[in-house]
Design a protein around this nucleic acid. Structure first.
Lengths: 176, 176
DNA sequence: ATATCTGCAAAAAGTTTGCTCTACG
DNA sequence: CGTAGAGCAAACTTTTTGCAGATAT
């Protein structure tokens, strides 16, 4: 098992994309999408996001970088990227869809039911098992999610708890 | 892996509840809720549901039994029962919330992303793995959920397809 | 050149709510 | 009886869309 480390940096340039483009912008190019100014900004915001922003939040962040962007465009972009498999839509309740880059790798959430902290983790064994289950039911697994709700073990038998890897503390709480 | 078998039957009567009441109606009484005619009907519809109806579908089914029911009441009831822990709200994409009785026991969902159909399954191996993961992170697993989003395998290489056990055929298709 | 994309504003779609009247306990 | 609940319609929230003008390739 591996605790997630989100990558925000950029790799080498790709043909057809401007050199400063974000990873997601390059994916857009690869998928044959036109790279408008707005789209480039939204792609960058998405690439740099370390949380799970909803459309409103994406709009806010994108607007800071370039005010000539409308919500409708964010909605359209996010939908387009989801269809291309570049983005994944998440539903943590609260009525609005939230997004994260597929390239961030699949990770899961363990929620500490006492503190509310969210711990992200990856687990290849889990991916494999879920894919196998889907296959047994006659499906190709396109995406999936798993959320664990747990309580710290009282005994100090904890095996693995990387210090800074814990609570992500996303912005939007449920509609309490 | 075991396909689920929902229980729809009724147990013995409870004090304070009318004899013909559905299991969920009895839970309502137990929680101190007034049992109006409408609520009783909605409770019954929920108790008898073997799928994951959204509000519109609940409204349709309830209206068939008693036409004096409004959508607003369905919304209110469903929300109330969720707060009481009697119902669980599910988000399978497609924009609408869907509900199922908590008493139906633990199972997982595989959503056909093309049709919106939901297949339920149980899997002990999955439970074990998730518990182990939680333990490795220093937690006792209190509850969890897993949802798979898949697409029917094009090739006929399906391994395991119990003829009548599969497609539950929930009503709402994704927003295709 | 031209198909794609954007902004704007209007419209959908889903859900909540204020108010008044009804009816459960 | 008193208060939770129901109906109705209007309000809200989130997301989609039609159209005219802009722009990347």
């Amino acid at each position: 098992m591996v605790m997630s480390t989100k990558k925000t940096g950029r790799e080498s340039a790709a043909p057809g994309a401007a050199v400063g483009d974000s990873p997601i912008a390059r994916l857009c190019v690869k998928h044959g999408l036109k790279m408008t100014g707005q789209r480039r900004v939204i792609a960058r915001v998405l690439s740099e996001a370390e949380d799970h922003p909803d459309v409103e939040e994406l709009y806010r962040r994108a607007s800071e970088l370039d005010s000539r962007i409308s919500v409708a465009t964010v909605y359209r972009t996010v939908r387009l990227l989801e269809e291309k498999g570049i983005l994944e839509r998440r539903d943590f309740g609260g009525g609005r869809a939230r997004y994260e880059a597929s390239e961030n790798g699949h990770h899961y959430h363990l929620i500490d039911i006492d503190s509310g902290n969210v711990i992200e983790f990856e687990n290849d064994e889990l991916v494999g098992l879920l894919a196998r289950i889907a296959a047994e039911l006659g499906f190709d697994l396109m995406s999936h999610r798993a959320e664990l709700f747990g309580r710290r073990t009282t005994s100090g038998k904890k095996k693995d708890a990387p210090p800074g890897a814990g609570g992500e503390n996303d912005s939007s709480p449920g509609r309490a």
